[in-house]
Write a protein that binds this DNA or RNA. Structure first.
Length: 276
DNA sequence: CTAAGTGTTGAAAC
DNA sequence: AGTTTCAACACTTA
């Protein structure tokens, strides 16, 4: 589900719902969501106040007083929403943070892949997952020189390379298919064989697509919703993802769908050049 | 009944 | 020894 634009939208919609609130009680219905010992997790966060919410890549960072940070990853289908604690527990709700003001934040996740990890603020970049993340799009660290250099060392295909969060973080299956179509690069192209000028195109398309998709509040194609329960807007702008069997908006050729390293991949066999 | 689905990870394989 | 691949995670929907 959520790739960087969706996670950023969740962050923005979550802030007005929970910022400044103090946790009175935590109920964990499905303990595997919690990376820490659940008892310790509850004990440490009880009576703590949410100061702000940051984000790195697809990770949400809930900042609490007393030097605590809760690292939260939604994986495929994780969602946060505000309730009153008397509302009956939904089938797929796994964790509840009850606040002292009488509201509660619930975490729902049909596939139970999401994780919450409580760490000391400042050490979050050493946690599994965040430790090896590459730069985010639209940052100084993600320079075109860096990107050309990084791709030149990769022996795998470009689709898999862009999904590799250690190269650039924040892209997922939807936006990778979109930026490769925009850049006219075949998903099975060898990353290191793509000419530099095409990598520059790809670089700009990554930055631009993340910017526009974030402005549109993300993409809802399966079940993604923000913290208010609202859908995104970028799905209407998708050119290839979910459009297999339809005509390419650039050349009219029928878009094909294949598997690339286990992930469904839609592309135009005419426009998108395969570099070997 | 089978396959596919927005993501990551640890271990196996290269 | 670093890099790449792949099954596994858990559940719903087509």
């Amino acid at each position: 589900m959520p790739e960087m634009p969706e996670v950023e939208t969740v962050r923005r919609t979550l802030i007005p719902l929970v910022k400044g609130k103090t946790i009175a009680k935590i109920i964990i219905w499905y303990p595997k969501i919690i990376v820490n010992d659940p008892d310790e997790f509850v004990k440490k966060l009880t009576n703590k106040k949410i100061l702000k919410i940051d984000r790195y890549g697809k990770y949400l960072l809930f900042r609490f007083n007393d030097g605590l940070t809760m690292v939260s990853h939604l994986r495929m289908e994780g969602k946060y929403h505000l309730v009153t604690p008397d509302q009956p527990k939904g089938k797929h709700e796994h964790v509840e943070f009850v606040f002292t003001d009488g509201t509660a934040l619930r975490y729902a996740d049909v596939r139970k892949f999401g994780r919450m990890h409580l760490v000391e603020t400042g050490t979050e970049k050493q946690t599994t997952g965040i430790r090896h993340l590459g730069p985010e799009p639209n940052t100084e660290e993600f320079s075109v020189e860096y990107f050309i250099n990084a791709l030149s060392r990769k022996k795998k295909n470009i689709k898999n390379t862009l999904l590799d969060q250690t190269v650039v973080c924040g892209l997922g299956n939807i936006y990778v298919d979109e930026v490769l179509w925009q850049s006219k690069i075949h998903p099975l192209s060898s990353a290191k064989s793509i000419p530099a000028d095409k990598i520059v195109d790809l670089y700009h398309n990554i930055n631009h697509t993340i910017t526009v998709a974030t402005k549109e509040r993300g993409t809802t194609v399966h079940t993604y919703l923000d913290a208010n329960g609202d859908i995104g807007g970028y799905q209407s702008m998708l050119q290839v993802y979910g459009h297999a069997g339809e005509e390419c908006n650039n050349c009219g050729t029928i878009l094909e769908k294949i598997k690339v390293n286990g992930r469904g991949t839609t592309f135009c066999p005419h426009c998108q050049v395969q570099y070997k």
